[in-house]
Simulated assay, not measured.
Amino acid sequence: MTNSDPMILNAKKAIISGFVMLMIAMGIGRFSYTSILPLMESQAHLSVSNAGYLAASNNLGYLIAAFGAGFITWGSRKAYHLRIQLALCIVSTGLMGVTTSFSIWMALRFLSGISSGLIFVLSSSFILDVLISAKCEKWAGIFYGGVGAGIALTGVVVPILNNFTWRGTWIGLLIISVILILPVWSLIRDDNNLASFQDPKPNNPSMEKKTHLFRWLLVTYGLEGLGYIVSATFLVAMVKQMPNASYFADYSWVVVGLAAVPSTVFWSRLAGKIGYIKPLSMALILQVIGVIMPVLVPNVVGVTVGSILFGGTFMGISMLALAAVRIMRPSSGNQAIALMTGFFGVGQILGPVGAGIVLDVTHSYELSLILATLVLVLALSLLIIGAAVSNRKSFIRTFQ
């Protein structure tokens, strides 16, 4: 195929539209809350525990959507449903600035979680269909870079929008989302002429045999959801309280986003060379360092290094873990991914609630991040143990 081939052109258009959809659904609809949280705490008098409940409400909506999307038959109208969910995501984000009712905030964050979860799942299916048909699967890493780009964007614009108070910040994000989606709205359309394709066959036969590693990965991924979400929720608020780095708080989220943009391409290429488990272990090690770094080195250097390591791993870990179980369970990949998403989602709900309670009692972001780090260390330990046990069982079976 040449660059002028219609399938290649469709793939390029799909990448652009998918990139923007993830910017809006994940970067703005889901993760902009991290940047706005300090302002809501100071101006809207949002308590730390209630901040945790709002994050948990969003994560619950995301869990229900991402877990349930795999069991819904969307037929040939994925683009139609994507447009509905994009509208819901944008509106539910903007309405956060219209009310001061905590119960309505909870409902709006829940709806935002529902829409962002459905957009993530539907856009992944929608874009990957096009890429597979055009034999451009390697571009998938660029598509997922939209999450990091959205995070970086909110990190840049939220401090500017803060001049219009917390209300104006939420409403401003609605306006920015509309500006982003309008140029690609016409690109979000179903193509019924896409070539049919089969589920991807495992390109790593040894991995396919390690089905007993699945339960270890399941628990590891659940703990990852619990550990990473604490930093993803409270990083900016914590840096705001650092005497030597408070001015850098908003920029720390920009760094997270910029590091996340190329990370999916890097981790996918590495997995193509050495498999999925080794890169997953490496990413977890780097994330452990990234989460604890602002606590160990509470200045701009520590926050910057921590933000780079965190941003460069959280999307990669999800991609690597889900790809690994897809290969392990070639005949039941969708169910396996749904189960993984469920464990991950439960962790994401428990993390902010638990951290919020700890913060209310101790008034210390540091302790919450230390506990989150210990959870991630446990996740890494279980992955290493599981891989060792799996290799041992595979070795014994070869000689039986």
Rank of each mutant, 00 (worst) to 15 (best):
K278R: 13
P330V: 14
G312K: 04
L258R: 04
T264G: 08
S332F: 00
W267I: 04
I285H: 00
I289M: 05
F266L: 15
F310V: 05
T313W: 03
R269L: 11
A336V: 07
R326L: 01
S268L: 14
V301C: 00
M319C: 10
P330M: 14
S307I: 00
G306K: 05
T264A: 13
A338K: 09
P294V: 10
K273C: 06
R329A: 12
V301Q: 03
A323H: 08
F266P: 07
V305M: 12
P298G: 08
F310I: 03
I327P: 00
G333P: 03
F266R: 06
Q335A: 14
A259F: 07
G333L: 06
N299P: 04
I337Q: 15
L284R: 09
G316F: 03
T304E: 04
S331L: 10
I317E: 06
P262L: 00
G333M: 12
M293P: 09
G272E: 11
I292M: 08
L280V: 06
A260S: 13
M319H: 11
M328L: 14
L296D: 06
G316R: 08
F310M: 06
I337T: 14
G290H: 04
I292N: 05
A324D: 07
S331F: 08
T264Y: 02
M293Y: 03
M328S: 07
I337E: 10
V325Q: 11
P279H: 01
G302C: 10
L322E: 11
G272F: 06
L286T: 08
L258K: 09
M315P: 05
M282A: 10
L322D: 12
Q335D: 08
L339M: 14
Q287D: 06
I327T: 12
V297P: 07
M328V: 02
I289S: 02
V300L: 05
G302I: 13
V261K: 02
I337R: 10
S281T: 12
F310T: 07
M315V: 09
I317P: 01
V261S: 06
S332T: 08
A271P: 00
I327C: 07
L284N: 12
S332L: 03
G312F: 02
R326F: 01
V305I: 15
M328T: 01
V288F: 02
P298N: 12
L339G: 12
P262H: 04
I317R: 03
P262C: 01
G272M: 05
N334W: 05
Q287P: 01
L286H: 04
I277Q: 07
L322K: 02
G290T: 05
